[in-house]
Simulated scan of single mutants.
Amino acid sequence: MISPILGFHHVAIIASDYERSKQFYTNILGAKILAETYRTSRDSYKLDLSFADGSRIELFSFPNPPMRMTQPEACGLRHLALKVADIKSAVDYLQKNGVICEPIRFDEVEGKYFAFFRDPDDLPLELYEIAE
């Protein structure tokens, strides 16, 4: 039997400071807001974001969410990789917007360049060059 799984639809992130993270993902990373919903019963916002290729992030706020216990090899989602056409210009862009990036590295298995950075809650994000 062939698996019915087509890929992933979204990644969900809980922010400690919703407005700060909203600005980071929209103004710096360029995600488009699809919908923003306040859920009174949960005292929580849900922000649906989309990138140019259709990939999505759900950004949530919750009152007093616990911090991630360990880094970087905690069980669970290790990092979120974002596709870019030109790694150098993407890193330059982030740095000009006050985002600290690790040095660009080379993935010897895939033959691609990548660099890590962090969101406002210190979540690990990666730029991954998809240019051929």
Rank of each mutant, 00 (worst) to 15 (best):
I2Y: 10
I2D: 11
S3G: 15
S3H: 09
P4I: 10
I5F: 07
I5D: 00
G7Y: 07
H9Y: 12
H9W: 02
H9F: 09
H10E: 04
V11F: 08
V11W: 00
V11L: 13
A12R: 06
I13T: 04
I13P: 00
I14E: 03
A15Y: 01
S16P: 04
R20F: 05
S21G: 09
S21P: 00
K22Q: 13
T26L: 07
T26H: 07
N27E: 15
I28W: 05
I28P: 03
L29W: 03
L29S: 01
L29M: 10
G30Y: 04
G30K: 11
K32A: 09
I33Y: 08
I33M: 10
A35C: 14
A35H: 15
E36R: 13
E36V: 04
Y38K: 13
R39I: 15
T40Y: 07
T40D: 10
S41V: 11
D43E: 08
D43C: 07
S44Y: 01
Y45W: 11
Y45V: 05
Y45H: 14
K46A: 14
L47T: 06
L47I: 06
D48M: 10
L49C: 03
L49Y: 02
S50F: 01
D53T: 10
D53P: 02
G54I: 05
R56V: 01
R56S: 08
I57F: 00
I57T: 00
E58C: 06
F60Y: 15
F60R: 04
F60P: 05
S61A: 06
N64P: 03
N64Y: 08
P66E: 10
P66Y: 01
P66I: 07
P66N: 02
M67R: 13
M67S: 15
M67G: 12
M67V: 15
T70Q: 11
T70N: 13
Q71A: 15
E73P: 01
E73D: 12
A74S: 09
G76N: 03
R78N: 14
R78P: 02
H79R: 12
H79F: 15
L80D: 02
L80I: 15
L80H: 01
L82G: 00
L82P: 02
L82V: 05
K83L: 07
K83W: 08
K83M: 13
V84S: 01
A85S: 13
D86W: 03
D86R: 05
D86A: 04
S89R: 01
A90F: 00
A90W: 00
D92T: 07
Y93G: 00
Q95R: 13
K96L: 09
K96T: 14
N97H: 15
N97Q: 15
V99Q: 03
V99R: 04
P103G: 05
I104P: 00
R105D: 04
F106L: 15
F106T: 11
D107W: 12
E108F: 11
V109W: 01
G111H: 07
G111I: 10
K112A: 13
K112F: 00
Y113T: 03
Y113I: 01
Y113R: 14
F114L: 11
A115L: 02
A115P: 02
A115N: 03
A115S: 12
F116E: 04
F116R: 08
R118K: 14
D119A: 09
D122G: 13
D122T: 12
L123M: 10
P124Q: 14
P124N: 08
P124C: 11
E126T: 11
L127S: 05
Y128P: 06
Y128Q: 09
E129P: 02
E129C: 10
I130F: 06
A131D: 11
